[in-house]
């Protein structure tokens, strides 16, 4: 089964050159993913594991120092696959907002503090959408907000009059204005407290149910993945280590890293002691050899240090990249 976005053996690295010294940060290192249609897809991983870079690449926004080394990202547009990374600037611009939207991290703080929200938005929309007058777009935006249960008067407010949660919800609501089929959201709930988080998640779910489109939600918070995603991928040091339906990942995590992540989550009513992963996250500048998790893995064996396991090609949707979970060789 093919998804709406297919990622094949993607490698995008940051190449930094400073005073003659060249450094390569392997942010996305050999990632293959299939993002299914009409659901909320989660990508989990801690800071600096390359998840934001992956999202930027999915959005086909590769700008120096980020460079594409290998692989491709295909969008499914009207039953045809289009390689997004070979499109030219104009073609990309045409797809943005109508086919694919990107909500960057901290987008709630991008509003111009001295302008009303609608002014910022009109400037932005007018530069992205051709053929529609400002007033038409504004009434469209108001209508859209109303449909999502947000007060349209909010557009007349200044950013500082609204809380972070409200600004984030408006940023999300307006990024879906032109009903894109894919929405990429980078840490939309970070820096919000639980109540505001819940309101944002509620909004994401509402939009998804209304538009029947695909959300790619990147966050480090496993609780949020459990709450809203249908299937998900776990990323570690630039690589995907586990993919599968969220329910299965939570009930039967296969990768030792995923096991740690899930078992270390505290719950109310459970006072048992929780442990976190030993050691520290690796640097993407020179990631460990073989499986990047091996220096921290409690079940490490010799082969882990030499070779990176591939995602096992079981017929199940739930796949893992770990030597421990290989089926015995035939």
């Amino acid at each position: 089964m093919k998804g709406i976005i297919e990622v094949e053996q993607l490698q995008t690295f940051y190449v930094l050159e400073y005073l003659g010294k060249k450094k390569t940060v392997k942010a996305v290192n050999d990632v293959t993913l299939s993002i299914p249609e009409n659901e909320i897809y989660g990508i989990a991983g801690e800071s600096g594991c390359g998840k934001t870079t992956l999202l930027k690449t999915l959005f086909a926004s590769i700008e120096p120092p980020l460079q594409l080394f290998e692989g491709k990202v295909s969008y499914l547009i009207k039953n045809n696959f289009v390689n997004a990374l070979t499109l030219n600037g104009k073609e990309k611009r045409e797809l943005r907002w109508t086919y694919i939207s990107y909500i960057p991290q901290g987008s709630m703080s991008v509003f111009n503090p001295v302008k009303k929200l609608k002014v910022t938005y009109m400037d932005f929309l007018e530069s992205h959408v051709r053929g529609k007058a400002g007033r038409e777009l504004l009434s469209l935006a108001r209508h859209h907000l109303e449909q999502l249960g947000l007060s349209p008067q909010i557009l007349d407010a200044f950013p500082h009059q609204l809380s972070g949660g409200m600004r984030q919800r408006i940023a999300i609501a307006l990024s879906t204005l032109l009903k894109p089929q894919v929405i990429l959201a980078d840490e939309p709930t970070t820096a919000l407290d639980v109540v505001a988080q819940r309101a944002v998640l509620q909004l994401l779910r509402d939009i998804q149910q209304e538009l029947k489109n695909t959300f790619v939600l990147v966050t480090h918070d496993m609780g949020i993945h459990a709450n809203i995603t249908t299937s998900m991928a776990i990323m570690y040091a630039g690589k995907i280590v586990e993919v599968g339906p969220t329910q299965e990942i939570f009930s039967n995590p296969l990768h030792p890293y995923t096991q740690f992540l899930i078992n270390s989550l505290p719950r109310i009513g459970d006072k048992s002691s929780k442990k976190s992963v030993p050691g520290a996250p690796p640097s993407l500048l020179n990631p460990p050899s073989g499986c990047p998790f091996h220096p921290r893995c409690p079940e490490v064996s010799d082969i882990c240090q030499d070779k990176m396991p591939a995602l096992n090609n079981s017929t199940h949707k739930h796949k893992v990249a770990c030597w421990l979970r290989r089926e015995p060789s035939v």
């Binding site: 809380s163 409200m166 639980v194 988080q197 998640l201 609780g223 709450n227 809203i228 939570f250 109310i268």
Partner: peptide
């Protein structure tokens, strides 16, 4: 409300009642 809003690490309980959200 606060306790109910914690994202529980359990995919079984996804739906939550909608909440009202007011400005600080």
């Amino acid at each position: 409300l606060l306790i109910e809003s914690i994202p529980q690490p359990d995919p079984q309980i996804q739906e939550k009642a909608p909440i009202k959200f007011l400005e600080e």
